[in-house]
Design a protein around this nucleic acid. Sequence first.
DNA 1: GTCGGTGAATTTGTCCGACAACCTGTTGAT
DNA 2: ATCAACAGGTTGTCGGACAAATTCACCGAC
Lengths: 247, 247
Amino acid sequence: MEGRAERPEPLPALTRVPRGSLTDQVIDQLRERIVGGQFPVDQRLPVEASLARELGVGRSTVREALRVLVHAGLLESRQGDGTYVRARHETDAALRRRVLKADVINAYEVRRAMEVEAARLAATHRSAADLARLHELAAARDDAAGPESYRRADRALREHVVECTGNPLLGDLYRGVVDPLRSAAAGLVDEVDLVRDDPARPETADLVRAIADQDPRAAADAAARHMDAVLRVLTVMLQAAPIRRHS
Amino acid sequence: MEGRAERPEPLPALTRVPRGSLTDQVIDQLRERIVGGQFPVDQRLPVEASLARELGVGRSTVREALRVLVHAGLLESRQGDGTYVRARHETDAALRRRVLKADVINAYEVRRAMEVEAARLAATHRSAADLARLHELAAARDDAAGPESYRRADRALREHVVECTGNPLLGDLYRGVVDPLRSAAAGLVDEVDLVRDDPARPETADLVRAIADQDPRAAADAAARHMDAVLRVLTVMLQAAPIRRHS
DNA sequence: GTCGGTGAATTTGTCCGACAACCTGTTGAT
DNA sequence: ATCAACAGGTTGTCGGACAAATTCACCGAC
């Protein structure tokens, strides 16, 4: 049953579900395993019969729970093959679905809202360690060798700003909105990223300085100027080549 | 089985699901019936055995579909009683759960991000009809007779601002964040709302004027001042009476 | 050696029957 | 009138059987 060497299932023994509990408890337990990384993304879950045995419930109960998590976007089930983890957080899957259905400009406007607030909060709440890391990431971005590594470095910097806010909810929402944008319109987004992040533009350096100076207003202003430039470029590019999506 | 006269189930005959289709089709079909109003909110669905017979599938298949819709927030199942329609549209249950798990200040910071961006976009994109309605809502708020109707009027005004943005994604996220806040910490939120919306404070009038004047910067500024006042009051109140939530 | 076809093994998908747990409404006793 | 017991109905869970789909190993042809 679990004899496929190419499918490692390095799982600790699952906790037995106490008798009397519901499918909801199985849902919660599976979700916690996913969120906690014990069932990593792209990994295959134990088969239904095994889950049932280890959780001490019937296979039907497991199936109902799995079906819920499949619909919620955390899992993907393939008949004859197995059930795979598709996302780590339920909010990620839900936001992804919603964002991918949205107009790109609208999604960027939402992103703008979060980046401006993140800048403001980062300037307010950042620690000395946050700042040291921010400077490292800014330097790495300036030193990046080509477009791909530049983009990676830029992304790391922006995500670190969101981490400096000390607001995990904002972090989750930011990633939930921005990650689908990256994968769905990858070519366009990358093009925009390059243009907007022309090293001659001062906004990102201003942002880093404002966070260092603990000046929320200046940080928000820098982030807003930055996203306004992005939106201008994006609007022009969409007029030149409209995206066809989600008919 | 359906012999309870006090539980009307005025349902048209359900379409038979073609053989070979999945639980997903039952999910879709039930959802369409709910969204379309054929299963109205607060009404009880036909019992599982009946649904199975009418859809031409097994009871297990119906159960899996129902479980999904329960988890998605559309249905509520009560053992021994029946399954009731709780909402007409698939609420973002995942976002709701996430917000309810968050620190209240963090959630308000996210709300601030969206209200500021909504103000800016409303001033940019609002139509004449939007503005006329905004003025009506502002007047209704000023004329509200007591705390409850004041709150309702205020809420209607703020949600209308978000509608004026012409950004449905922002609208969904705003409601996804704000609605759980309202229900979860209702007493606290209402207290904050009252204090922050002291009629002597100018922010909301400034916001309405800036939207009328199509001045995004002034609108964003008014919304920011408004939410900053809210956050100050909220911080003080949380120090006085910390919320115990979601241990 | 490579490639394609076939069949076995495995896993999910569906159905069914049985019974437990729970809820609602009715009836009878006080 | 209230309360308790009971019956009937409904959801929740379990287990078994089998269909449908996928993967993989084996074998034969080239």
